[in-house]
Amino acid sequence: MDDVLTLSRRREEAAPSVHHHRGTSWKEHRCGPCPRSHDVQMPKRVRVPDVMVVTERPSGKITDQVPVVVAEVLSRDTRSIDLVDKWEEYAAFGIAQYWVLDPERRTLRLLRLVDGAWEETHLLDSDNDTAVVTVGDHGSVQLDLGEILGG
């Protein structure tokens, strides 16, 4: 897996602790945080995902690459934008997976794009807090909600 994980500066502290299924972290697969956040040029606007995985390290601040995975960390200020506006825009842009972390509700919702609509593949919560997630043809990652939320 040679993908690149980029974090928006405001969300570096919320970066998920994600492990490649074989027990190595994405960071060990050149998926460490980029030194700066990157914006994604969408058809109608530029967006700054909290976390995104792209196949090549962006050369500038704005990339037109379609991310493999985009993750958003919900907050009171961004909840409606992340769950309505970005939900629709990311689907229209063809992003394969959308992960939505809700620290307040202590959930991580994993969605994949199927025929232009989001389909939930996993819901991590207090009853089911780990999952091995296949990321397209990029391999699998182990997610642990407790580690992601910091305990």
Rank of each mutant, 00 (worst) to 15 (best):
37 S>R: 14
103 P>W: 00
129 D>I: 04
117 A>L: 03
109 R>L: 13
145 L>D: 04
56 E>T: 11
23 G>E: 00
151 G>Y: 06
46 V>E: 15
82 D>N: 06
67 P>V: 03
89 E>K: 01
83 L>G: 04
42 M>A: 13
116 G>S: 02
48 V>L: 09
66 V>M: 01
58 P>R: 06
114 V>P: 02
120 E>Q: 15
37 S>L: 07
33 P>V: 02
127 D>S: 15
98 Y>M: 04
97 Q>R: 14
4 V>Q: 07
73 V>S: 02
105 R>C: 10
94 G>C: 09
46 V>L: 14
146 G>W: 07
122 H>Y: 13
42 M>V: 09
12 E>V: 12
12 E>N: 10
113 L>Y: 05
72 E>P: 08
93 F>S: 06
81 I>M: 01
9 R>Q: 13
140 S>H: 07
34 C>F: 11
90 Y>A: 02
106 R>E: 10
54 V>F: 05
3 D>T: 13
142 Q>K: 09
106 R>W: 00
112 R>K: 03
139 G>P: 11
45 R>E: 14
54 V>D: 03
76 R>H: 11
4 V>M: 04
60 G>V: 07
95 I>R: 08
33 P>E: 14
8 S>G: 13
73 V>M: 02
111 L>V: 00
123 L>G: 08
137 D>Y: 10
96 A>R: 11
143 L>C: 05
109 R>K: 11
98 Y>T: 00
146 G>T: 07
67 P>N: 04
148 I>K: 01
101 L>D: 07
40 V>S: 02
18 V>M: 07
115 D>S: 15
126 S>K: 14
124 L>K: 08
92 A>P: 10
32 G>S: 11
63 T>A: 03
14 A>K: 13
74 L>E: 02
151 G>N: 14
112 R>W: 03
36 R>A: 15
102 D>V: 06
15 A>Y: 01
141 V>L: 09
48 V>Q: 12
107 T>N: 04
36 R>L: 13
123 L>N: 10
38 H>A: 13
31 C>F: 11
139 G>C: 08
120 E>L: 09
86 K>V: 00
26 W>P: 05
76 R>F: 05
141 V>Q: 00
4 V>Y: 03
77 D>C: 04
122 H>W: 07
145 L>C: 05
12 E>C: 09
68 V>W: 12
98 Y>A: 05
78 T>M: 02
85 D>P: 01
110 L>W: 08
95 I>C: 07
41 Q>D: 13
78 T>D: 02
132 V>P: 12
79 R>H: 12
76 R>S: 13
100 V>E: 06
126 S>R: 15
103 P>I: 00
12 E>W: 07
